[in-house]
């Protein structure tokens, strides 16, 4: 069942998830999730609606607290830690619902997450990546368009110095130009050495940014497809995703 990846030397492993279970109250949602991510790698979690992708990211981040198993990061098992401690270790989440704060303006939203490490992205660089934000700093956060809110949600976690990013469907519902812009951003982050776990419905987009793809079904990883094999494994992929 576990991803049939060749074992990665632990020195290069940024994150390893082993036999992860998670619950919402009584309902058991992750059933032995397992995958790993190398330092500097971009991996995706692909799967149908309700497969448990978001829950996986929230379990890593410590937002879903009812969890068991191993989430190894920086020599620690994150399962016993609360989300603020996990964030301080250098992991940041850009959530599916974006979570832009209505009572904060764009600047305050952008500056909200505290710096957890040295070397976070400078504001000038962020405005270079997302020029729209620079023009809207004084606007109320939720007055931005959907695309701008997504940019803000990504930009917000780049400042913190976290080098391990969890991005939950950053392209959902966005126009193709903005999807391309987000694709460029992710490739740039990768080239700067960020490690990224990306949840995507849009595997065509995923194929343009990722190194490996993990297929999630019923709260487990059922397959792993390296990005260079995705071309001739289209049929399998279509079957998994039901597209």
């Amino acid at each position: 069942m576990a991803a049939a990846a060749s074992p990665i030397p632990s020195a290069q492993r940024a994150l390893e998830v082993r036999d992860l279970h998670a619950w919402y109250g009584e309902s058991h949602v992750l059933h032995g999730m397992a995958f790993d991510v190398r330092e500097g790698e971009v991996v995706t979690l692909l799967g149908r609606n309700g497969a448990g992708k978001t829950t996986t990211l929230k379990s890593i981040m410590g937002i879903v607290r009812q969890r068991q198993g191993e989430i190894l990061f920086g020599g620690q098992n994150l399962v016993s830690l609360s989300s603020n401690k996990i964030a301080r270790m250098g992991i940041a989440l850009c959530p599916e619902e974006r979570a832009i704060f209505a009572s904060l303006n764009v600047r305050e939203n952008l500056l909200l997450p505290p710096e957890v490490r040295e070397g976070g992205m400078r504001l000038e660089t962020i405005f270079e990546l997302f020029p729209n934000l620079a023009e809207r700093l004084a606007s109320q956060g939720t007055k931005l368009s959907g695309g701008e809110q997504q940019m803000l949600a990504i930009a917000r976690i780049l400042r913190t110095g976290a080098r391990f990013l969890l991005l939950d469907e950053p392209t959902e519902g966005l126009a193709p130009v903005i999807v391309q812009q987000i694709g460029r951003t992710i490739r740039r982050l990768k080239s700067e050495g960020f490690t990224i776990v990306l949840v995507e419905q849009n595997f065509r987009f995923a194929a343009t940014v990722a190194d490996r793809h993990f297929i999630v079904e019923h709260g487990q990883v059922v397959d792993m497809i390296p990005n260079d094999e995705i071309g001739h494994r289209q049929d399998t992929l279509h079957e998994y995703l039901g597209v």
Binding site: M61, G62, I63, S82, S83, N84, I86, A87, R88, A92, L93, P95, A99, F101, A102, S103, L112, P113, P114, V116, T160
Partner: peptide, 11 residues
């Protein structure tokens, strides 16, 4: 507004 997310930012 959203204590869960604020905590996930490290606060």
């Amino acid at each position: 507004e959203n204590p869960v997310m604020v905590q996930a930012f490290g606060i």
